[in-house]
């Protein structure tokens, strides 16, 4: 996990020490990176030059360095961490199956996966229901 904003690493320390510790009860456990000039945010398409801040960009990167998922939101609405974790778990499951399984809509660990192949074409309705499996 790496967090990034345009604030300096020194301000990150102050935010950790004076607010976040009080909020969660311990130090931030990940790297808080500083992107003052917006160089990193620019290449990720999340830096707003006019406001001089980063949008809420979230990128799930797999062990090979491939971006598997992204989400970009404007500032006034916060993220849903549960959904991020669900997506990471689903991508981990797909990777562990070496791509033989796929995670349908609403999938969570323990729920039914699908095995894409010729036999499944037109037959998803037989093995997966939005009412019982979603």
């Amino acid at each position: 996990m790496i967090s990034v904003s345009v604030d300096s690493q020194f301000v990150h320390k102050m935010w950790n020490d004076h607010e976040l510790v009080k909020m969660v009860g311990h130090d931030v456990p990940f790297h808080m990176a500083s992107d003052g000039p917006g160089n990193v945010g620019s290449i990720y398409g999340v830096y707003d030059e006019n406001a001089g801040v980063e949008m809420r960009g979230r990128f799930i990167i797999d062990p090979d360095g491939i971006i598997q998922a992204m989400e970009i939101m404007t500032p006034p609405v916060g993220r849903q961490l549960k959904e991020t974790i669900r997506q990471i778990q689903a991508y981990q499951h797909v990777r562990a199956s070496k791509g033989t399984e796929a995670c349908p809509a609403g999938w969570e660990p323990g729920k039914k996966t699908l095995k894409p192949g010729p036999d499944l074409v037109g037959n998803v309705w037989k093995v997966w229901s939005p009412k019982t499996d979603h």
Binding site: I2, D7, V53, R56, P63
Partner: peptide, 23 residues
Amino acid sequence: VKLSDFLGKWTLLCFYPGDFTFV
């Protein structure tokens, strides 16, 4: 911090508007 040092791990990269902001 260098992103490529995290190769071999699942990595979450999160940008946000600013420290000491409200959301």
